[in-house]
């Protein structure tokens, strides 16, 4: 089923992705039918809590899920017209770091401690481009300058850099081959606030300059508001609400998304009790029937535990998976004051 990828300039399209982790008869349903599309130059935020399936979704794009126990059980991932899930390991290797690259959460562990940062950047360039060693090293220095590090430090080792600087090096490696798609998995979680501000600013600049599409995985709605164009809210392996930044922040519809916003301490409303979502994330090896969120939902009705909600489009850009927005379900969301 060849999709017309060129329409609207879609860079990445994921269709009904299902990923399980299977060990000793226990099946963890990490991703249960995720579909998303990303336009060129746009940034999509994947928001959710631990275990929502954000990272698994991202890793499936690069086929970096550890197998065993991880198994992609269904769906398709199309990038620039190529069906990535049919690719061999060899073909994937040529894509990783070239067309798609990834920034991981912890810069301390994603750099090799025994190679200089220059070597590590040059390595990526040499793998994917036909250049000499000297050329690659020259390019590596340029990349360092680009992320705000003096090119002369190319000969230094990762431990000689601070956390924020290391993350800049990681960004330089990720951008070295000018990828079409950049996946950033909580790129600033391990950094301090003032350093985070610097790194986010840098990523924004570089993305605008190179028109890179990006998937930003985060749990911080503040970062989302500042860096992203579209938002997908994930819960228990599904996208429960998706829309533009405005759709999600101003026209919040799904009870889970509402709950997420209410859980944040608000700088303006101090000394007021927070309104957390009750209960805990469901066990992904034993998901609730019907809507996965119903045990924690304030508006849940009997039907929520038996019927799976479908995507309901509220506008061209905004959809939600909640029975309250489907017709004749009897589920209603009564707005609380405020």
């Amino acid at each position: 089923m060849e999709k017309q990828a060129s329409e609207k300039n879609i860079v990445l399209e994921i269709e009904d992705l299902v990923v399980n982790y299977e060990t000793d008869g226990v099946v963890v349903h990490a991703v249960n039918g995720v579909s998303l599309r990303l336009e060129k130059g746009k940034t999509l935020a994947l928001v959710g809590e631990t275990g929502a399936g954000k990272t698994t979704t991202a890793l499936s794009i690069l086929q970096l899920i550890q197998d065993p126990p991880g198994k992609i059980r269904g769906g398709s991932i199309t990038m620039d017209g190529d069906a990535l899930l049919t690719f061999s390991e060899r073909q994937m290797e040529s894509i990783r770091g070239d067309k798609v690259s990834m920034i991981f959460q912890d810069p301390m562990t994603s750099l090799n401690p025994v190679l200089t940062v220059g070597q590590q950047i040059a390595e990526v360039i040499q793998i994917h481009q036909k250049v000499s060693k000297a050329e690659a090293e020259q390019k590596a220095r340029e990349m360092l300058e680009l992320v705000g590090i003096d090119g002369g430090r190319a000969g230094e080792y990762p431990h000689q850099f601070s956390g924020g600087m290391k993350q800049r090096v990681v960004i330089a490696i990720a951008l070295a081959c000018n990828p079409t798609l950049l996946i950033a998995d909580e790129p600033t979680t391990a950094l301090d606030v003032t350093i985070q501000a610097q790194v986010l600013e840098l990523m924004k600049e570089l993305r605008e300059k190179y028109q890179t599409s990006m998937i930003m995985i985060t749990h911080d709605l503040g970062i989302v508001a500042e860096t992203c164009d579209e938002v997908s809210i994930m819960y228990a392996g599904r996208i429960v609400e998706h829309g533009t930044l405005r759709d999600i922040f101003k026209e919040t519809r799904h009870p889970y998304t509402v709950g997420l916003f209410n859980s944040l301490p608000n700088i303006k409303r101090r000394q007021e009790m927070l309104k957390p979502i009750k209960g805990l994330m469901p066990d992904p090896s034993n998901l609730p029937t019907g809507c996965s969120f119903h045990p924690r939902c304030d508006y849940a009705q009997a039907i929520c535990s038996t019927r799976k909600p479908a995507q309901t489009f509220l506008s061209d850009t905004h959809f939600v998976e909640c029975l309250a927005y489907e017709s004749n379900t009897g589920v209603t969301i009564t707005k609380k004051e405020g």
Binding site: Q196, Q198, L221, G222, A225, E226, F249
Partner: peptide
């Protein structure tokens, strides 16, 4: 000023600091 605020209308001027801790 460095705290990312979860509000899309609230665009605050960010004071970027030089250097590292």
């Amino acid at each position: 000023s460095a705290i990312p605020v979860p509000d899309i209308d609230h665009k605050q001027e960010r004071i970027l600091l030089k250097g590292e801790l």
